[in-house]
């Protein structure tokens, strides 16, 4: 069922990974991605993988659901790996027609696949341990300096939290409409591509209508409560860095520095 998809799902908890300030987690994820792209060797990739494993262990998120998150990008992962295997110049290991496998290619492919997997799992770990509201709060706060450049930061954050808030609602709605049409014999699973696309009509029409209806209702409800944008609006939960955040920052910076130093020594 659709309800079972894990993409970006939040696992509530009280572990140190959950208690970190969302801004800390956002920055650390960015640092982690930078470090991933700086890494060039088994040692530094090992360090990156170890970091992720430790974070997962601390967060108590079931590793199974993190790996499940890789499923949607499996195709891209294999595709990039194959491209790298065949199109990296170097010592030729095996050749047939235009396909050439090189030793360098195999290494690059492996590292590329590992890099993408770690990147995705690292990002997912953040969304698994941070509620969507905290996440948008953190982003709004981090983007605050852009307000001076007349970027509508609050509006963007509001749009994002509304979008995130309605994903589960829409999924539930899709499930319901799907069941209702299935009860009348609709078949979403079999048939040719064209038949399946046609079978989506009884699902999409009611879904769009209800999405528009919900948007309208939400707008009215917000206006009834005198919503007029971010000006002078206070927060229920004010974000504050605490000791745990500084510790996390220090560890993150240390790992990044370590990877860069390793790269300099060609490791």
């Amino acid at each position: 069922m659709l309800k079972d998809i894990t993409l970006g799902q939040y696992f509530p908890g009280t572990t140190p990974a959950h208690r970190l300030d969302p801004r800390t987690k956002l920055i650390l994820v960015v640092l982690y991605i930078i470090a991933l792209f700086a890494a060039e060797s088994f040692v530094s990739y090992g360090l990156m993988a170890l970091t992720l494993c430790l974070c997962v262990a601390v967060s108590k998120v079931p590793p199974k659901s993190l790996i499940k998150g890789l499923k949607p990008v499996l195709f891209i992962l294999i595709f990039t790996a194959l491209l790298n295997v065949f199109y990296t110049p170097g010592r030729i290991l095996w050749q047939w027609w235009i396909f050439r496998v090189t030793i360098e290619g195999i290494f690059t492919a492996f590292f590329m696949a590992l890099r993408i997997s770690l990147l995705i799992m690292g990002t997912f770990l953040m969304t698994y341990t941070t509620s969507p509201i905290m996440l948008t709060d953190g982003m709004e706060s981090l983007m605050n300096p852009l307000k001076k450049l007349h970027v509508p930061v609050h509006e963007l954050a509001m749009m994002m939290s509304i979008a995130l808030r309605f994903i589960p609602t829409l999924i539930e709605e899709t499930d319901k409409i799907m069941s209702a049409q299935k009860a009348r014999g609709a078949d979403f699973e079999t048939g040719s591509l064209l038949q399946r696309a046609k079978a989506m009509v009884p699902l999409l029409v009611p879904l769009f209508i209800s999405a528009f209806r919900r948007a309208d209702e939400l707008a009215v409800a917000m206006e009834c409560r005198c919503y007029h944008g971010g000006e002078g609006r206070t927060k229920l939960k004010v974000l504050r860095y605490r000791g745990i955040d500084y510790t996390a920052f220090s560890l993150g910076a240390l790992i990044l520095a370590g990877v860069i130093v390793l790269a300099r020594f060609g490791l």
Binding site: K176, S179, A180, K182, A183, G185, D187, P206, I209, S210
Partner: peptide
């Protein structure tokens, strides 16, 4: 199972939202 669904008709709650 599809045949069972034709023989056991189910009208959902607020079924008007399924019209298309």
């Amino acid at each position: 199972i599809r045949e069972v669904r034709f023989r056991v008709g189910l009208v959902f709650q607020y079924p008007e939202y399924q019209l298309f």
